[in-house]
Amino acid sequence: MAMLEIKDLEVYYGAIRAIKGISFEVEAGEVIALIGANGAGKTTTLHTITGLVPARKGSIQFLGQELTRIPAHKIVTLGIAHVPEGRRIFSEMTVYENLLMGAYIRKNRKETEETIAYVYERFPRLKERAKQIAGTLSGGEQQMLAMGRALMSHPKIMLLDEPSMGLSPILVSEIFTIIKEISAAGTTVLLVEQNAKKALSIADRGYVLETGNIVLSGTADELKEDESVRKAYLGE
């Protein structure tokens, strides 16, 4: 059984059906790319997984547990960390406090300090800026902080929503290298991206989302070779 299994999921905003019955799965250890144009429903899908938006129909199973009835604040305790679109760091708190927030569900303070040390090792720039107010960080640093904050909960799976958004090509590469490292360290990754090329370069498999439907799926190599994907998402 897959780690994360989504079946016939439908999500509405008022009367508008934003997700129209999608199914997909993520196996433990995989990096899965969910690609699609702006407005396709990628963010909505992630929000539904972590309970920020309710599902109307269908199911979301994580390690055999149904998520659609669990309140949002309990979902992180199951091992799901969500790095939201636009980072959503706590911009009036310090970098250090943001990391503490990431460990909110963890009780052992000593262990938390150890995890912070680990995050600082992975993101040395966060360590330099530990006492700085997070809102004053650059876009790339804020993305790193959002990812570091997610790591603080020791997730089994990390959901990343457009981590490359608004970053320079060099920073984008840096962020993707880190995602690969996080995956190599044993965390499963569900990666939402408009930057399909980058996403498919590190993914094992991918799904293409179009106006609330999954229109294509396959291994990353298959998708990279697919005519319609090349045209629509790889700009070729």
């Binding site: 309970g51 604040h73 960390a81 939201p84 959503r88 706590f90 909960s153």
Partner: peptide, 16 residues
């Protein structure tokens, strides 16, 4: 402070 700044992000941290 987290809830006052960003309610959804706070929920993602596990805050009730």
């Amino acid at each position: 402070r987290a809830v006052s700044e960003d309610r959804q992000a706070a929920e993602l941290m596990g805050i009730d």
